[in-house]
Amino acid sequence: MAKYLFLIYGDEQIWEAGTEQDRKDVEAGHAAFAAAAGGAILSGHELLPTTTATTLRGSASGGPTPTDGPFLETKEALGGFYVVEAPDLDAAIALARQLPEVAAAHSGVEIRPINEHG
Score class of each variant (00 low, 15 high):
residue 54 T to D: 13
residue 104 A to N: 15
residue 57 R to M: 13
residue 111 I to G: 08
residue 107 S to Y: 03
residue 99 L to W: 03
residue 89 L to H: 02
residue 110 E to N: 09
residue 52 T to G: 05
residue 83 V to W: 00
residue 72 L to W: 14
residue 115 N to G: 05
residue 45 H to F: 15
residue 101 E to C: 14
residue 60 A to Y: 07
residue 71 F to Y: 14
residue 81 F to W: 08
residue 62 G to K: 11
residue 67 T to N: 13
residue 74 T to W: 09
residue 5 L to A: 13
residue 14 I to R: 11
residue 51 T to C: 06
residue 71 F to Q: 06
residue 81 F to P: 01
residue 7 L to E: 09
residue 66 P to T: 02
residue 109 V to M: 05
residue 32 A to N: 12
residue 66 P to H: 08
residue 107 S to C: 11
residue 78 L to Y: 05
residue 58 G to A: 12
residue 82 Y to E: 02
residue 28 A to F: 04
residue 22 D to L: 04
residue 103 A to C: 05
residue 42 L to I: 14
residue 68 D to V: 04
residue 104 A to C: 15
residue 68 D to L: 01
residue 67 T to E: 13
residue 60 A to H: 15
residue 1 M to Q: 14
residue 11 D to Y: 04
residue 77 A to H: 11
residue 49 P to M: 02
residue 9 Y to P: 04
residue 107 S to H: 03
residue 94 A to C: 01
residue 86 A to E: 01
residue 14 I to P: 07
residue 108 G to C: 12
residue 114 I to S: 00
residue 33 F to N: 00
residue 117 H to C: 10
residue 3 K to S: 12
residue 70 P to M: 00
residue 81 F to Y: 12
residue 19 T to L: 12
residue 101 E to Y: 14
residue 38 G to C: 12
residue 96 A to K: 02
residue 88 D to M: 02
residue 50 T to L: 03
residue 35 A to K: 13
residue 73 E to L: 09
residue 47 L to Q: 03
residue 64 P to F: 15
residue 26 V to E: 12
residue 32 A to I: 06
residue 107 S to K: 01
residue 80 G to M: 01
residue 23 R to L: 15
residue 79 G to V: 05
residue 71 F to C: 04
residue 38 G to M: 08
residue 59 S to R: 01
residue 43 S to E: 11
residue 88 D to C: 07
residue 49 P to Y: 02
residue 20 E to G: 13
residue 31 A to N: 14
residue 68 D to A: 04
residue 34 A to I: 12
residue 96 A to R: 00
residue 79 G to T: 03
residue 84 V to D: 01
residue 31 A to R: 15
residue 118 G to D: 05
residue 10 G to N: 04
residue 108 G to F: 09
residue 18 G to V: 07
residue 23 R to H: 14
residue 25 D to Q: 09
residue 18 G to H: 04
residue 108 G to K: 02
residue 74 T to I: 10
residue 99 L to K: 05
residue 107 S to R: 03
residue 110 E to H: 10
residue 95 L to F: 05
residue 10 G to C: 04
residue 43 S to Q: 12
residue 50 T to E: 13
residue 109 V to P: 06
residue 118 G to R: 10
residue 52 T to Y: 09
residue 101 E to R: 14
residue 115 N to Y: 06
residue 56 L to R: 04
residue 47 L to F: 05
residue 103 A to P: 08
residue 42 L to D: 07
residue 37 A to T: 00
residue 40 A to N: 07
residue 28 A to K: 06
residue 28 A to W: 06
residue 97 R to W: 01
residue 86 A to G: 02
residue 109 V to G: 06
residue 101 E to T: 14
residue 73 E to S: 13
residue 114 I to N: 02
residue 113 P to G: 10
residue 110 E to L: 10
residue 1 M to G: 14
residue 82 Y to W: 04
residue 29 G to I: 06
residue 18 G to A: 02
residue 24 K to D: 15
residue 29 G to V: 08
residue 18 G to Q: 06
residue 54 T to S: 11
residue 82 Y to F: 03
residue 116 E to G: 06
residue 6 F to L: 08
residue 37 A to N: 01
residue 34 A to P: 11
residue 47 L to P: 05
residue 7 L to D: 03
residue 8 I to R: 11
residue 35 A to P: 10
residue 70 P to Y: 00
residue 108 G to W: 06
residue 77 A to D: 10
residue 37 A to F: 04
